[in-house]
């Protein structure tokens, strides 16, 4: 238990200097047919800050991340990245914004025709034409080594476990050195040791590279470790948002049920 608090102590306070949040979601609504998945969501994340998004299965956490990177279009409300509204942007214009974002899919979504190393090098091949082939290879290897995947670089995604795929997906999300990191359950399916390593890595990125991160997770232990703030989603709304301590003092039944996990 002591280690958890050690790591928790390493939190850097989010920078307040320039004020403007990097990601700002305002009154966001999204329905699929008659299923009102998100029903007025407000969230903000600043530079160097990590927001953990919690919620029961099917509450629209993945949909929220997909909306922020523009893979789904909102029914109403706005999403601003660096103070630019992304709604209605053409794909190539949106691409410029996406280059600054790293995205980890819930099921990793690795390219099954490419090896592990090629998957991580893929964004570099397309966006870093200034880098030589070997430089890109080195960068991919370095990222994979950070995930503890250096022994599996030549394997195909179908030949590694789900937890390993997740780590490769995280390496791929970091390839372009994004300013914004959107992670959909980064520690799901990982053993406690790997999961601890991923938490450390996210903290390190937050500290050293001042990334703004939104992390969807069911793992309260991880959320407590990495997040400056937590938000709990239920029935399309943010039920509560704040520091871990604030959630502990809440008397909303759902919040209590969630915290009972620990």
């Amino acid at each position: 238990m002591a280690t958890v608090f050690d790591i928790a102590m390493k939190h850097t306070e989010p920078e307040k200097d320039n004020g403007a949040p990097i990601v700002a979601v305002e009154d966001l609504r999204k329905a699929f047919g008659s299923n009102n998945v998100l029903d007025g969501i407000n969230l903000q994340v600043a530079r160097g800050e990590t927001l953990a998004v919690l919620g029961r299965s099917g509450t629209g956490k993945s949909v929220l991340l997909r909306l922020i990177i523009g893979l789904e279009t909102p029914d109403s409300g706005s999403i601003r990245i660096h103070d630019q509204d992304i709604s209605g942007l053409a794909m190539d214009r949106m691409g410029e914004i996406r280059k600054k974002m790293g995205f980890l899919f819930q099921h990793a979504a690795l390219y099954d025709s490419l090896t592990v190393a090629e998957n991580v090098a893929f964004p570099l091949v397309h966006h870093r034409r200034d880098m030589s082939r070997s430089e890109r290879g080195d960068r991919a290897m370095q990222l994979l080594a950070e995930m503890g995947m250096e022994g599996d670089v030549d394997k195909m995604p179908s030949d590694i476990s789900g937890g390993m795929q997740k780590r490769v997906g995280l390496a791929r999300a970091l390839a372009l050195e994004p300013e914004i990191l959107l992670l959909d359950e980064p520690t799901a399916g990982l053993d406690p040791i790997s999961s601890g390593e991923i938490n450390d890595l996210i903290l390190k990125l937050q500290r050293e590279r001042k990334m703004a991160s939104i992390v969807v997770t069911h793992d309260l232990h991880s959320a407590k470790t990495i997040a400056n703030r937590l938000a709990l989603l239920d029935q399309g709304k943010v039920v509560i948002e704040g520091k871990f301590e604030a959630l502990q003092h809440s008397d909303i039944a759902l919040v209590k049920d969630f915290l009972n996990q620990l």
């Binding site: 997909r66 190539d92 691409g95 996406r98 979504a109 690795l110 099954d112 791929r172 372009l176």
Partner: peptide, 20 residues
């Protein structure tokens, strides 16, 4: 189709590459 249902086409798009 298999790339679509396993979100690989979304991954291409999320990597700022136009899948079209």
């Amino acid at each position: 189709a298999s790339m679509k249902v396993t979100e690989q086409i979304d991954a291409v798009e999320a990597s700022a590459i136009n899948p079209y």
